[in-house]
Design a protein around this nucleic acid. Structure first.
Lengths: 132, 132
DNA sequence: GTTTTTGCAAAGTATTTGCAAATGG
DNA sequence: CCATTTGCAAATACTTTGCAAAAAC
């Protein structure tokens, strides 16, 4: 296995994610970082996002459609995805990890984790009454 | 809005899904149906899968990586995705819809539904001791 | 006959990868 | 120096789409 070396790009990506409450896509991260580091490449962003996700330093949020989003907050929480504007927001709520126990009851394999995504209309889209 | 016309291709796709307990991808469905209908196209498969999903006659299963899977069983249940072989299996379990109520407590938007995917090692991969 | 659906191929979106050069330790 | 990371561009994976022909009604 290989040792991890410091990289300014990776550091920026981590910092960028840490400083935001929304959940940007690779493309968004790329565009933003490019203002400070004009030579950073999209490939590098993707490579580092994958690496950081594997390391468990950030979380990847896959939705039913569109690109993946990324979250610098790895604390226990879930996400809400608006079916209208596709915004991803945090959904801090009481711990529901007991659904793991419920799931394990009738399953032979080894369950290690779960992802719960909630769907609907975000506050904004609800207000503006946008149609499905 | 437009009226729906019968199509042999759409019917085959529905039947194919109804006759299986696994959760094939568009590509798998395409390959299988092609043995009976050599001229069916992948585009048609995708178009019908989207349509059937919108109509609520089948379910689309998006995972953290790889192509979407499809499920002909629209009864209330969840899915387990093996991190090793990427197989998707059914996880019939006690109803956990109350997590909706838990989620709604601290959220301003309108939550309409959720998707809970469970991850880990399937029975097979657990046995054969494949590494992560 | 009119509308919907198809097959085909081409385009679109999201992501990964090969490689030589740059950077880190 | 040697190992890792980068930028760039090309490649890949998955899905959607335009259009003329075929099928449904």
């Amino acid at each position: 296995m290989s040792t991890l070396k410091y990289s300014r790009q990776r550091e920026s990506i981590k910092n960028f994610l840490a400083g935001r409450k929304d959940h940007p896509t690779a493309e968004t991260i790329y565009s933003s970082l490019r203002q400070e580091q004009p030579r950073i490449s999209l490939g590098t962003v993707y490579r580092n996002l994958s690496l950081l996700t594997e390391l468990g330093e950030i979380r990847k949020i896959s939705t039913d459609d569109g690109p993946d989003h990324f979250d610098g907050d790895i604390s226990q929480h879930h996400h809400f995805i608006c079916r209208q504007c596709h915004q991803v927001s945090d959904l801090h709520m009481e711990n529901i990890d007991y659904i793991l126990d419920t799931a394990k009851k009738n399953f032979q394999g080894q369950i290690e984790g779960y992802v719960a995504n909630f769907y609907g209309l975000c506050e904004e889209c609800k207000k503006t009454g946008n149609r499905p």
